[in-house]
Simulated scan of single mutants.
Amino acid sequence: MEFTVQQIADLLQGTIEGDNLVGVRTLAKIEEAQEGALAFLSNSKYEPFLYTTNASAVIVSNKLELKKPVSAALIRVEDPYTSFSVLLQHYQHALIASKTGVEEPCFMGSSSQIGKGHYRGAFSYIGNHCKIGQNVRIFPQVYIGDNVEIGDNTTIFAGVKLYANTKVGSNCTIHAGAVLGSDGFGWAPQPDGSYKAVPQIGNVVLEDDISIGANTTIDCATMGSTIIRRGSKIDNLVQIAHNVEVGSDTVIASQTGISGSTKIGNQCVIAGQVGIVGHITIADKTTVGAQSGVSKSVKASGTIIQGSPAFDYKQNLRAMTVFRKLPELQRDLEFIKQKQRD
């Protein structure tokens, strides 16, 4: 696919300096770009590459003042990084949208429905009584259990498993290997020291505009639903337990684990390798730093916490400063005690 600089500028609502008819057929980093590529500049430390790049066009800020002549056509926008992200989304969508039709072998059960413009990859399986919307892309080796519902324009990449009764909204992306609806970790201890399984009969519900990362697992509820609210983005290798509720527009980074029945608020940021205990509530707009262990509820909106156990971010930094000085403080203490003995 090839586009002119003018077409790209129209999409981004930008202004052009240079040849508006030059063709662009690929995207690249500004330091690596060759003829026919479109790059972007958002970080000032990469500005020297602007004057040497072989890119045919570069997206730059409206505020950038050139220090030297530039051979590439410039597309000036308010925020180059966001604009380039928009282009990447369009490019990715174009690649996915090129997948249409039904590859064989694949299977769809009785009474299941699927909308127009869909794609079903080879060895995909759709159970009975499923309702699947329009323009849904189901890649090879996807398993969709009975009574699953999937909204319009959702993409489900290879090897995803959606257990029975899972509900997925519109405009969602579920990346390879994710599992939604597997049993929650419910085991009742017995007098003899063994454990008896507690049946998990609920489901998983994803609202609209959600992204689920590769190999992430979201357990079904014991009863009711495990819910991910609209617009949330969940990274690879995240574990979300039964009856958890994740609020809208919350982001959760890789290797985080959230225990059962915990409620995460709206617009929260959960960094990598965070562990959150069960049956607590995290307030809206909470930020949890990487490798933190959250053991109690966070009640105030906008709180920033860090550490294990996690507490106020600034207090944690001060505590870590003291911690690093402990060997020196111990040496001073031993010196004082020796003085007293003398």
Rank of each mutant, 00 (worst) to 15 (best):
T52P: 01
D249C: 13
E47T: 10
H118Q: 07
I201L: 14
V298L: 15
K299D: 14
E65G: 00
K337N: 12
G260M: 10
Y46K: 04
V269Y: 03
E245C: 14
L206K: 03
S301Q: 14
R341H: 06
A37E: 02
D332E: 12
D284M: 12
S232M: 04
G265K: 10
L66F: 13
D249N: 15
I75P: 07
G127L: 13
F139C: 02
G272F: 06
A290Q: 10
G213E: 11
Y91G: 01
Q291D: 09
D249F: 14
G145L: 00
D10T: 04
S254M: 05
A73Q: 01
A178Q: 04
N266L: 07
D342L: 11
C220H: 14
V160N: 03
V86F: 12
A122W: 11
I156T: 09
I305Y: 02
V244S: 09
M223T: 14
T256Q: 06
S170A: 15
C172G: 11
S211L: 06
H93I: 08
A241G: 05
A28H: 13
R331D: 06
S112R: 00
A28C: 09
I174A: 07
G109F: 07
G272R: 03
V322Q: 09
V136Y: 05
A164G: 08
S85Y: 08
T216H: 00
V288S: 04
D235T: 09
G278D: 14
V204T: 13
I174D: 04
V142Q: 09
F123I: 09
T53Y: 04
Q315W: 02
L88R: 13
A37C: 04
Q338F: 02
G193S: 00
V58W: 01
V246T: 05
T155N: 13
G265V: 03
G293K: 05
H129S: 14
N20R: 14
Q291R: 14
L333E: 01
E103W: 03
F107S: 12
F185L: 02
I174P: 03
V269N: 06
R25Q: 12
R318M: 09
F157P: 05
A39M: 09
G36E: 01
T281P: 02
E31T: 04
T154L: 01
Q239I: 08
M320T: 01
G231I: 06
Q34A: 15
Q239F: 13
G289V: 01
I264Y: 00
